[in-house]
Write a protein that binds this DNA or RNA. Structure first.
Lengths: 340, 340
DNA sequence: CTTGGCACTCGATTCCAGTGAGTGCCAGGT
DNA sequence: ACCTGGCACTCACTGGAATCGAGTGCCAAG
């Protein structure tokens, strides 16, 4: 049995009203506030059906209805219309992000902007190392047995790592190693670089063999095994806006947000930019976040996503507005990184 | 009029009980739980005096007493006895911090450890740039007009900055610049380095003059004008442990914690290691944090502090335990950084 | 100066009735 | 077949009264 148009319209109205009023919505109020062209009694019948199908529910017998996760899902998939950003918002994005000096700056501004725009908790992942390409590898001798490896990616991200060598090396060795690793790895995607590290050993002279052995081990860790992802967030204070939203306390949510791994699972698993993903309540893989919704999207410079960003808030959130904001910010940041 | 010993003992008991029970403590309960050797009536008289002097207060007429900020202050200054860490805690510190790979790792582990140990919000500042010394400056050409400056400090912190040159440069120029800046700056404190940047221009050949001009401007920014301080925190979920502690909501606290500037004011203003500072409630310079106490201490490798760390929690906190933990962690981290 | 006694205060808890938003169901109208 | 008005019913919420009890301040006696 499918839902006819009016029932869908009723659901849309319920979601809309509940999001703005934060209170269960009844048939009378619905009839008043929307031009549905039917009487409260009719709406009641529709609501009974919607409830039977699991789209809405009532907190207690004599109260209005509240959308369920399933209801929000239907709303997001079929009922929500895109809410274009206001010009003020667009201007805010541009103003906020332009003039960012370096990558850190871009990411920090972005996350704060997103939190402010959506009034939710915002999350931004640094451009993923494994999806970036190597622009340059620099070897900096520090003393005679230690060396700092500096990895610069095309997105401007810089990672470093100290290496201790078992034996001393001189400048010549450093120079040799430097040109060797750059020759083999520069321009390659980090995910691709792993396979080419082995080649390094084969192609170089015997003198460089032992130090390159040490170096390649570390490089392998740096590029592949430890693609340490950084994630920043802002706007946690927004969680307290409506305490009603979170059954017990916001505690489990705060706990989950402190787990890098959790955030990565939510925001790091992106394939291509512009595929936006909405996880609603129980759809969420993380136990502590079953009362929240997550809107995430990939951002990147071209057709492949570099990393994810998005927001997290109560299931009762303004999905159209949030989705627009997240998408717009992602696009803007992508362009910004592509242009640098 | 001064407070005699028994009154101080009563105050100590009140603080102790209130911290552990989270409820206003009355004269009867005090007499029962502590061996004060006097009757509740006597305690009541003492409490009346303590209240008159502003050390305790009662939330409402028919309730027990609660320490005021002033009461906590007296407690911390004169009444609290050092609570040595349990061996389990000491072992936890060692286990948690040993095996940290690099500076990022140390800082991240430290902040989480501190949050776990004190069950409060923990804050750790990265070793301050302005208080570190330059170990090495590396110039990495990226293309023919761009260069990445990498600054490595003695504490293992690495800062980088991209520079765009108006004209092209070749390898020879890069080598020249590199040895010049390292010669002039390596080994110097960053705060001290500023004055020596000018010298650079005078001492080098005319060929290097123009690029060095560009470079020195950026170096100046990097070393002095933008001593960007990084601060990380953990354990914000601990704020929700007892909702009673925060009058309205924890909102203002969360807001304050998101402000880098605020955190810097609280944890960044340290002189020497081992001078621990406790700010109680209203003593706090930040409006939003008037309901919290901050325990901060400097940590460093030698006699001068590199940066600050500490915790923030409700004024009703276990001061002796918190102070011990903060001090112990600071010392451990200092040693760790000194040894690397 | 301490102590037991005592009257008093006042927040917290419980109980109860009244209110009203909201519902489900049904019979009649289009 | 569907919509509508009517109606009885449910039940959270509100506010006031009664009660409880932890805790106080004061006082007179030791």
């Amino acid at each position: 049995m499918s839902l006819d148009d009016r029932k869908l319209e009723v659901l849309r109205a319920i979601v809309g009203d509940f999001v703005s009023t934060e209170e269960p919505v009844g048939s009378k109020a619905l009839a008043d506030r929307h031009q549905l062209g039917v009487s409260p009694a009719t709406i009641r019948n529709d609501m009974a059906v919607l409830e039977e199908e699991g789209y809405i529910t009532q907190p207690h017998t004599s109260a209005g209805r509240v959308p369920t996760d399933k209801g929000y899902r239907l709303f997001v998939d079929r009922l929500s219309t895109v809410k274009p950003l206001s010009t003020a918002e667009k201007r805010a994005i541009a103003q906020f992000l332009d003039g960012a000096a370096d990558l850190d700056d871009v990411v920090n501004r972005t996350v704060r902007l997103l939190a402010q725009l959506t009034r939710q908790v915002a999350v931004v992942q640094y451009p993923s190392l494994s999806r970036s390409t190597v622009r340059h590898l620099e070897l900096v001798p520090v003393g005679v047995t230690r060396m700092l490896i500096v990895l610069i990616t095309d997105t401007g991200r810089v990672e470093q790592r100290m290496v201790e060598f078992p034996t001393e090396f001189d400048d010549e060795v450093v120079t040799g190693l430097r040109s060797a690793v750059n020759g083999a790895l520069a321009g390659r995607a980090l995910s691709d670089a792993a396979g080419h590290i082995d080649e390094l050993l084969g192609q170089i002279g015997p003198l460089l063999r032992p130090p390159m052995n040490t170096l390649s081990t570390v490089l392998l860790e740096m590029l592949v095994e430890r693609p340490e992802e950084r994630i920043v967030l802002a706007g946690t204070a927004n969680l307290t806006r409506s305490a009603l939203d979170f059954p017990g306390t916001i505690r489990p949510v705060l706990e989950a947000l402190e787990e890098q791994m959790v955030l990565l699972r939510l925001f790091g698993e992106v394939e291509s930019p512009s595929t936006l993903r909405v996880r609603i309540g129980g759809e969420n893989p993380v136990e502590n976040l079953r009362t929240t919704s997550v809107v995430s999207v990939g951002y990147g410079t071209g057709t492949s996503a570099l990393a994810g960003l998005g927001v997290l808030g109560p299931t009762r959130m303004d999905y159209p507005g949030t989705i627009s904001a997240v998408r717009a910010v992602a696009r803007y940041v992508g362009d910004l990184l592509a242009g640098s």
